[in-house]
């Protein structure tokens, strides 16, 4: 079956088409539903085509890491919940889910999506800790890019909880102070199928891809690259970057972040 699907994808690609009616450099339609969970400081459900990811931000106070005494802490986790696809198994996080989590984490961190210095309460002693937890609930390929959008959407939706006099978090009191987004990093995965490069692969394209490259970009440039399976030439990587820039710029304009 694999080879038959590949044949179909390639024949269509020769005519400039894709199996889900879009351009090679185009993301699937994105929609965001905010405030899916009131106990989270910020939350969103993001659909990228038929791929759906729930994301939420929880905040707490903690000691800073020794190498960044004046910066808030960040932790990103994405679970490929078995509800999302028949091949996802229950149990400890799979290697795929760990890799996705880490790529999203690096994107948010390296692009300084939020001002981590502002999340310092007392240098060397107390900082805000930001947990972005995500759960794929429906997978039709490219959970990574959907997860990266969901992380940004949940952050954009985040309101800081209140701190009491003893610097303890009071979750009951909602503070109206928003976590300010400084930059919008977006991940863009490009797959190579024979000599075609396609942005945001759906599950069928992902399955037959010869190689894969994920590039995280903001308006300021490239913040992260993760090559998946297969090989790519120098020129192909350059083309992937051009595609990713175009696709993420377009998507960034479309996103309604709040």
């Amino acid at each position: 079956m694999k080879t038959n699907v590949k044949k179909q994808i390639l024949e269509l690609a020769q005519q400039g088409k894709r199996i889900d009616d879009r351009a090679f450099d185009e993301f699937r339609p994105v929609s965001i539903e905010y405030d899916i969970s009131v106990n989270a400081e910020g939350s969103a459900m993001v659909s990228l085509g038929n791929t759906k990811v729930n994301a939420g931000v929880k905040m707490d106070v903690a000691e800073p890491y020794p190498d960044s005494p004046n910066k808030g802490n960040l932790m990103v986790g994405l679970e490929l919940s078995p509800i999302a696809a028949p091949q996802f198994e229950p149990g400890p996080p799979s290697i795929d889910s760990i890799e996705i989590s880490r790529v999203i984490d690096r994107g948010v961190r390296e692009a300084n999506a939020v001002n981590f210095e502002k999340l310092c309460i007392k240098e060397g002693e107390l900082v805000w800790q930001v947990f972005i937890d995500e759960y794929a609930i429906d997978s039709d390929g490219n959970v990574l890019d959907a997860g990266a959008i969901a992380a940004i959407a949940a952050l954009a939706n985040t309101k800081l909880p209140k701190l009491d006099e003893e610097n303890k978090v009071d979750y009951k009191e909602k503070n109206s102070k928003k976590l300010e987004l400084r930059n919008v990093p977006l991940a863009c995965t490009v797959v190579k199928i024979e000599n075609f490069l396609l942005v945001d692969p759906n599950s069928k394209e992902e399955e037959v891809a010869d190689s894969k490259l994920t590039i995280t970009m903001s308006e300021h440039g490239i913040h992260g690259i993760q090559k998946g399976n297969g090989v790519l030439t120098e020129q192909e990587i350059a083309e992937c970057i051009t595609l990713a820039k175009k696709a993420t710029d377009k998507l960034r304009k479309q996103l309604k972040l709040k």
């Binding site: 969970s37 106990n39 989270a40 400081e41 939350s43 729930n54 939420g56 931000v57 929880k58 707490d60 986790g77 679970e79 919940s81 078995p82 509800i83 229950p90 947990f131 937890d133 759960y135 979750y171 009951k172």
Partner: peptide, 12 residues
Amino acid sequence: FYNMYSFSVSDR
């Protein structure tokens, strides 16, 4: 499989 989202409750 009952899976409680980490952000479904006040304390993560």
